[in-house]
């Protein structure tokens, strides 16, 4: 039973980690929390569904197309919406919650019922030890790995990536050395949308897609980000995996009624004990 719970938790944890990255990217740059993140994940899944139903794309190109569209959408929304919410973090929170409600209910108009997602990642059942699971789980884990490596490479080796990091570290200094801060912020939103949408497509074939699928995942991904360190990318990944595995183990061995509690208790305890999270660094927080 342990194998089953562990591997299942790992896959869910990867999803928390990738969606959580969206929180982290925006937080590092703006010290703001985008509560529409979970609903972007949901919208990404539906975007994947709409594309996959019309064009028969293999898995990898599908992920790429959805990521690209979501990236563009993130940049456009930054320009039209988010930019007007930088006033303070309360305004940003409520505004982004409003955006989330619009996204969720907008999708609901077109898809009032849960819909099965085409099995783009295959539907074979794989057996490892005593654990059995769909091929899709492997895709989730591997894609997360690849995504993290790509992000790391981008932040370390590309000019744009370094610019983003500079803005995240200190926007004012970055501006004085000639970084286009506005562009960097727009790119950040693009990236955060892209990763969340890709996570949506990864999870789609494993479960169904429904307009409310982003609610809980969003909150847990957020807990994962805070647990690992909301300004740290490796921290968020670690946080996602730990929460995914822990809650599955708790659900299997202790009580499935309180399975959901794990993430939020971890969130609360971590904030009080160490608000910067496991791997996060202390940053001056603008109050």
């Amino acid at each position: 039973m342990f194998d089953q719970l562990f591997i299942g938790g790992l896959a869910t944890g990867c999803v928390y980690a990738v969606v959580g990255l969206g929180f982290t990217l925006v937080y590092r740059t703006l010290r703001m929390v985008n509560f529409a993140q979970g609903h972007v994940f949901m919208a990404g899944a539906f975007l994947g569904l709409v594309i996959a139903e019309r064009v028969h794309l293999p898995a990898l190109p599908l992920l790429f197309v959805v990521g690209a569209v979501a990236f563009a959408l993130g940049m456009v929304l930054e320009r039209l919406v988010f930019r007007r919410l930088y006033h303070n973090h309360e305004v940003f929170i409520v505004g982004s919650i409003g955006l989330g409600i619009v996204l969720m209910n907008g999708v609901r108009v077109f898809f009032p019922e849960p819909v099965p997602f085409p099995k783009v990642f295959g539907s074979e059942v794989v057996q490892i030890g005593a654990a059995r699971f769909q091929e899709g789980y492997l895709w989730v884990v591997l894609s997360t790995l690849v995504l993290v490596v790509l992000l790391h490479a981008m932040f370390t080796y590309t000019r744009t990536g370094r610019a983003l990091r500079a803005v995240a570290a200190d926007a004012e200094i970055a501006a004085t050395v000639g970084v286009d801060v506005k562009r960097a912020i727009a790119l950040t939103f693009g990236l955060s949308f892209a990763v969340a949408a890709i996570a949506g497509v990864l999870i789609g074939p494993l479960y169904f897609v429904s307009f409310d699928m982003g609610d809980m995942v969003g909150l847990k991904a957020f807990s994962a980000a805070v647990f690992g360190g909301i300004n740290s990318i490796p921290g968020t990944i670690l946080g996602g995996l730990v929460i995914g595995v822990l809650e599955n183990l708790a659900g299997g061995y202790i009580s499935s009624a309180y399975k959901d509690l794990v993430a939020f208790v971890i969130l609360l305890v971590m904030l009080i004990w160490r608000p910067t999270g496991l791997l996060g660094r202390e940053t001056p927080v603008k109050v």
Binding site: Q4, G8, N248
Partner: peptide
Amino acid sequence: QSADKDFTAQLSR
């Protein structure tokens, strides 16, 4: 819980 998507924990038991 109504909103659960992944039931591996429950089904393993």
